[in-house]
């Protein structure tokens, strides 16, 4: 399938730091895709256990949910790198280059700020669950800090990619909003 936006994937040029961040995001993307595949297989296993073997399915639903959440949060940075987070680029498209550049800097800075806030409180929430020993209220009783870990890790990786994008924009390696 083709790209989701008129913008191209984020560029790194030959800058080693940007390339390293891109590699980390790609790795996170692989992990995310693997988790989605694992969720498919576990769900099918659950159906077999229940429908074919008429057995109990206690942990599968929960495992699949946590895998999907982790896949989403860990995938954020990779999708950011691919510029797959859909946006409305009507106004940026119609602006002269200088103003477009300033607007791109502003929106990037705001994005970094909100993601940093979520990272901060996400870490706090994770730590709270870890410290208090929270579990899920099911027979399986998962220690909740494990699935919650996806919040600080996912948003941390996203923050890393966003800062790299911001630097690429400042250094002129990448175009504002990825627009030519």
């Amino acid at each position: 399938m083709s790209g989701h936006s008129s913008a191209a994937a984020a560029r790194t040029g030959s800058n080693p730091v940007l390339r390293a961040v891109a590699a980390i995001s790609t790795l996170a993307g692989w992990v995310s895709a693997t988790m989605i595949v694992a969720a498919v297989l576990i769900t099918c296993q659950m159906i077999v256990i229940r429908y074919v073997l008429n057995g109990s399915t206690v942990w599968q639903t929960e495992a699949v949910i946590y895998l999907m959440i982790a896949a989403t949060l860990l995938g954020l940075s990779y999708v950011q790198r691919l510029r797959g987070h859909v946006n409305v680029d009507l106004i940026p498209l119609s602006l002269p280059p200088r103003i477009r550049f300033v607007l791109a800097l502003t929106t990037s800075a705001l994005t970094i700020a909100i993601v940093a806030v979520i990272l901060w409180y996400g870490y706090e929430y994770w730590h709270f669950a870890w410290e208090r020993g929270w579990r899920s209220d099911t027979v399986w009783g998962v220690k909740l800090w494990i699935p919650y870990l996806a919040i600080p890790v996912g948003f941390g990786l996203l923050l890393l990619q966003l800062v790299a994008d911001f630097i690429a924009l400042l250094l002129g390696i990448d175009k504002p909003f990825g627009l030519e």
Partner: peptide
């Protein structure tokens, strides 16, 4: 195979992040 998974992951993560 990776292209299939990459495209699916990209669209899914985009949608699920909007949902969240």
């Amino acid at each position: 195979l990776w292209v299939v998974l990459r495209d699916s992951t990209r669209e899914s993560v985009m949608i699920l992040f909007i949902i969240a």
